[in-house]
Nucleic acid binder design. Sequence first.
DNA 1: CAATGATTCAATAAACTAATTGAATGTAAT
DNA 2: ATTACATTCAATTAGTTTATTGAATCATTG
Lengths: 220, 220
Amino acid sequence: MDIRTFKDKIYSELASISKAMGNPNRLEIIELLAQGPCSVEYIVSNTGLSVANASQHLQTLKSSRLVTSRKEGKYRFYSLANQNVYRVWSAMRELGISQNAEIGKLMSDFRESRHNLESLTTTQLLKRMENEDILILDVRPREEYESGHINTALSIPQNELIQKMKELPSDKEIVAYCRGPFCAMADDAVLMLQDHGYQASKLDAGFPDWKEAGHPVAQY
Amino acid sequence: MDIRTFKDKIYSELASISKAMGNPNRLEIIELLAQGPCSVEYIVSNTGLSVANASQHLQTLKSSRLVTSRKEGKYRFYSLANQNVYRVWSAMRELGISQNAEIGKLMSDFRESRHNLESLTTTQLLKRMENEDILILDVRPREEYESGHINTALSIPQNELIQKMKELPSDKEIVAYCRGPFCAMADDAVLMLQDHGYQASKLDAGFPDWKEAGHPVAQY
DNA sequence: CAATGATTCAATAAACTAATTGAATGTAAT
DNA sequence: ATTACATTCAATTAGTTTATTGAATCATTG
């Protein structure tokens, strides 16, 4: 095989990976799958896609080998094929944040609408955990917490926080996290906590970023 | 703005980055631009694209803010917008190599046709450079060497190697490198050197990977 | 200032992609 | 075995992307 043919084939295969990621709905599915394996139904209820449409996008991702699936009873669970898929997604996210003014504007507008909450970086959190007694709060849906969470984190899904807030100690500082920088659950939780007199801030990274960085995780 | 609208916009913007990379020709252009700024003409002569087609792909990359351009006399030079673009490309490359069996097969077939040359990793090379006297040879076209190369590397473009081989010391071990894992120039150079009695091997990474890893580089 | 050369723009036809709909498949519970 | 439910498949329509062609810019060179 000559070098031209070789390159044509290689770049076509790689472009098919990029094409598979080149759709907003599929990117959202990838970010959701990064939290852990999900059924089609779970994806549907978290994205607003129709069932057939979600399934079709999953087939696309599967045929580009970005996701795998396993059947369990009535449900079929989809997962990211390997950690490299998340690395591509997060590199792409960083590229977008660094280069695309529209994304920067959307994020800062959104943050302003949430009163410009301060956020901690992963490094800052780790450092403060050494010296201070901090409560780490996972506000993602229970399923996601169960398929993996920050080592010492407590789970209170954002939509249950109002009722369960009384379970939280009022003397500890709270750091909340969720899926990642495009997810508002931690922001909403922190606002709610601050409204009720807690000392709370958010982590600027999501669980998959924490895991990717090699920090300690736990799961059931 | 509600969270659904926010997410729709964010993911659309990010998908447009991925779409821009979702074409084999544009990926090849990106890998070429990773070597340094290039004119349209240079891209054309290194890819076999038509001029109008190459220009059109460059416009696509530019409107997704993956590349920038500057004019210099008759020529317009295109560059990658920032290092994040290369990070996405290399993450995608690693994903392809790890996950796509067709890519693995293409690469190993190609390597076999080059007699399964042994290659050094960057780490191995750095280690051996401490103890031994090794000649690092950049076999990419001169333009690419000039816009950046491994610190102590000597430039002999692969297509000039036959004539200039006599300039090389015969007592030093030679390590050749080129653009990256999909580029055959280093393999061809090593084969040629070995045929003429030199002790030669290739680096398994290209210049952009060396640079991305933060190892010492030089340029004119 | 005309000629040259590098690059971009505009228009087109062919190929591909997305969302929707409704039917089909397969599993589990009654 | 019937029913309910989760998921996939197939067909359709609307919209997008690609390569090609040839014309249009625009800076340099003679």
